[in-house]
Simulated assay, not measured.
Amino acid sequence: MNDEINYTNNPLHGLGLQDLLTQLVDHYGFETLYAYLNINCFKTNPSIESSVKFLKKTEWAREKVEIFYLYKYKNLPRVSSEQFALPPRKRIIPEGQTPREPAELSLEDAERVREKQAQKAAEHGKTKHYQNSKPDRYW
């Protein structure tokens, strides 16, 4: 019962995946969702029904959409470090934090975000050192 009380402090509590997607698509459209989330169900023959079907089967994609819903569409402040590791539906929104107007997003902004992420990934790859990549001796 205590868990039930905690989850009511989350905008995802009681919200079905189809309703969540409908809200996102009505506000942003499939093109913007694909640009920000890079999930193919928003690009190839997109529909609410096919997206729901895919997201129900694919946990990582569903969580990505739920995080987008919480922090872009509901425009909540960043999650605390304790809550970061939890799936979006299990996160507890602190008292006093209420959803705000949806973030204004553009395709140009999405491209800048992707470029920034690609640059970080490239930098991370450059600094990564592999230990024991070659055996000390060959048999």
Rank of each mutant, 00 (worst) to 15 (best):
K56M: 08
Q83F: 12
I39G: 10
K53Q: 13
Y69E: 01
L70I: 01
L70K: 00
S51R: 04
F68T: 03
S80W: 08
I48W: 04
F68Q: 07
E59D: 10
E59S: 12
I67D: 15
S81K: 11
Y69T: 01
L70G: 01
F42R: 11
S51G: 04
P77W: 14
P46C: 07
F42T: 09
K53C: 09
A61M: 04
K53V: 04
W60L: 04
N75D: 12
S81P: 00
L55E: 08
Y71C: 00
P46V: 04
Y73Q: 03
K64N: 08
Y71F: 15
L33A: 10
I67L: 11
K56F: 00
T32V: 15
T32F: 01
L37T: 02
S51C: 14
Q83D: 12
S80M: 06
E82P: 00
S81R: 08
E31P: 00
S50G: 03
N75F: 06
E59L: 12
Y71I: 00
I39E: 09
Y34E: 10
V65L: 13
T44I: 11
V52K: 11
V79C: 15
A35N: 01
E66Q: 15
K74Q: 13
S80A: 13
E49I: 05
E49T: 11
L76F: 05
F30S: 07
T44F: 02
R78T: 13
C41E: 10
Y71W: 10
E66H: 01
K74W: 00
T58P: 00
Y34P: 09
K43G: 01
P46F: 04
Y34M: 08
S81W: 04
I48K: 05
Q83V: 07
K43C: 05
E63Y: 13
Q83Y: 09
L76H: 05
L37C: 02
V79I: 15
N75R: 09
T44D: 10
Q83T: 09
I39S: 07
Y69P: 03
P77G: 13
N45G: 03
L76N: 03
L70S: 02
S51P: 03
Y69M: 03
S81C: 03
